[in-house]
Nucleic acid binder design. Structure first.
Lengths: 211, 211
DNA sequence: TTATGTGAACTAATTCACAGCG
DNA sequence: CGCTGTGAATTAGTTCACATAA
């Protein structure tokens, strides 16, 4: 099987959103053109992306929408809910704890961790906040493999080491620290400044439109 | 002048962060290798990226750190603070209002807008929340050109139309709606699900490491 | 005709290779 | 040497072109 390009993987969640919207509208089949128009992409790109999932569409008709949703969801590993914990319950962390959208991505944040005694033991957006000293025991107990890191840069590496020791295998890093982890741990950096940079540069007319 | 690749633009903020850290440590010159090691990139990539700014480095020594900061900052248009407003003061919107990191990106969120009467008139993280009916007059008065959109998908297009009418030129879109705007308006979509998708797929072993 | 599916052509981005300088 | 600067080679991703099917 050919390797799936990273940009394709990143577009899949957008396709899922369109699929969900159209499903709500009662639509049963969907073409690459439908998705493309909805998102402002070309139909060729969408078609090629969908091709990587191996789904077979019907010429003139398109894809069975239910089936397409299934193959993309399962490609992303979102068919079952993945439990996650979040470390660093500041402004951003609290927001993510309350963010409903993650359900669509198969992500379920079970609880938050922090060192701040004012919030430990409380609930934020319905999620219990525990002390970071309990991280290891809770990760073991809850069998969580994903950690969302929303501490500030200065404690990011230290907290990461704790997460790794606790058995976390994937880290979604919202801090700006370049985390050092063992080879078998996956880190995904979320870089808000990257898209702000694009917006700024586009606004300054240095570029044509697109992307 | 050659066009600067988008990925390069997206890496620039990361370089700036390393530069700032090393400046605090009192360092006066910095090489592409220094930055690369700090971020886990190759020195060739960093060197090529820096090359796009036109800065002249000294072989064996590297770049003057102050000067490098300046050329990257100015390339991104971050040398002066850009004022922005934020629309949709829910969980995510509130978090962004309180997010200190934006200062480094030359972004200053002046105020928030919402329709919720419970918060209109109040201050959140020191920023006044106004009613969306006042959007147009405030945008004119404050001469803001950037709008941060953190409403939910169902109202995203409607609010966008209001922003465009009010004179906003660049929209940072945190909703999952594909916004329709006139040609001269720049929209940058922030897609959290994209990096979660990468994390998920990497975790499911479908891929080797990297990126 | 309208859609899929796919090899081929093209474009973008990364990485290599090496000249030149302190 | 260690580092910059840059054209060339390579790899990755997108877009084209067209065969095929309902």
């Amino acid at each position: 099987m050919k390797p799936v390009p990273y940009p394709t993987i990143q577009r899949f969640p957008l396709y899922l959103e369109v699929i969900k919207q159209l499903q709500i509208a009662g639509i049963k089949t969907i073409s690459a053109t439908d998705i493309a128009q909805n998102l402002g992409f070309t139909n060729i790109q969408v078609r090629k992306d969908i091709g990587y999932t191996g789904i077979i569409g019907k010429p003139k008709i398109g894809y069975n929408i239910k089936e397409l949703e299934k193959v993309i969801t399962s490609f992303l590993g979102w068919q079952n809910t993945n439990d996650a914990i979040l470390i660093g319950v500041g402004a951003l962390g609290s927001a993510l704890l309350g963010y409903k959208g993650f359900e669509d991505y198969g992500l379920n944040i079970i609880s938050g961790f922090d060192v701040n005694k004012k919030i430990v033991g409380k609930k934020i957006h319905g999620k219990t906040i525990m002390h970071i000293d309990d991280l290891k025991s809770q990760v073991k107990r809850l069998k969580v493999s994903i950690g969302i890191l929303t501490v500030n840069q200065s404690s990011a590496q230290q907290v990461t080491d704790l997460m790794v020791k606790a058995g976390i295998r994937g880290i979604w890093n919202f801090s700006s620290e370049n985390l050092k982890v063992p080879n078998d741990i996956v880190v995904q950096r979320e870089n808000l400044s990257a898209s702000l940079a694009l917006l700024s540069v586009k606004l300054s007319h240095k570029f044509k439109t697109k992307q």
